[in-house]
Amino acid sequence: MTEKTIPAKADAQNVTTTREDERFLKPPVDIYEKADGLVVICDMPGVDRDGIDIKIDTSVLTIQGKVAHAHDADAIYSEFGLLNFFRQFELSEEVDQEKISADLKNGVLTLTLPKVEKAKPKQITVKVG
């Protein structure tokens, strides 16, 4: 009885990527709550409309932004470096995932996350008997 080692096929298609080398920036956010929903405001300078990618998968909101920005000139002095943006948030059940809307202006992304009907505040009138 001999032991034999059969090497696994190094097929490029079978290899799943578990890690990527890319580094991301975590964009700063403001989140505030209104009676009918949440508002998420996110600073993403250098990202245009084509470079933004917002996804919702099993209650996880993923915001990704690709920075479109290239220069030929020589750098003399440098204080910042831009990388692609990435940040994830877990959504509560109160958020109506179908009705989320987004707006990008001057490098600021504004997401509006409305609440589901049953989570909205209700006024109960008291009858005077």
Binding site: P45, H71, A73, D74, I76, Y77, S78, N106
Partner: peptide
């Protein structure tokens, strides 16, 4: 960030 070439100086400011 400041860059330059033969003709111009470019100043780029991060102000979202």
């Amino acid at each position: 960030n400041i860059r330059d070439d033969k003709e111009n100086i470019y100043i780029e400011a991060l102000a979202p």
